[in-house]
């Protein structure tokens, strides 16, 4: 089960995901980021405060979005990941790829 909510601010979009992202639902997460990027919205904050779990299916979507955002001069950053998510990012070597912020507001302000 995964829930996804997009909040569009002036310059930045915050995608809040809750629950679990795995192969059964990663396409929804992928599409939410692709939709924004295709509209030229390139400053994305992933609010992970309510995310319990993410498998490689979600990680692949994050990397694809990061590539696309950076090519357009933007970025994808992470806010409030839990301990398990931080561990997962470290396991695949993504901890330096995605800037992490302890609070969503800090992440929004980084743009």
């Amino acid at each position: 089960m995964m829930e996804l909510e997009v909040k569009s601010l002036k310059k930045v979009d915050v995608i809040a995901v809750s629950g679990r992202i795995d192969s059964s639902n990663a396409a929804d997460f992928d599409n939410a980021m692709k939709d924004l990027l295709s509209q030229g919205r390139r400053h994305i904050v992933l609010d992970l405060s309510k995310l319990d779990y993410m498998s490689s299916a979600g990680l692949r979507a994050m990397v694809a979005a990061l590539k696309s955002a950076r090519h357009g001069g933007g970025n994808v950053v992470i806010a409030e990941p839990n301990e398990r998510m931080v561990d997962t990012l470290k396991l695949v070597g993504f901890q330096t790829l995605f800037t992490q912020y302890p609070h969503v507001l800090d992440a929004v302000d980084s743009f």
Binding site: D22, S23, S56, A57, D87, L91
Partner: peptide, 15 residues
Amino acid sequence: LERNRIELAVDEACS
């Protein structure tokens, strides 16, 4: 944390 790692391995294998 170790259980999360085990879940990841099983999830990836089944996927």
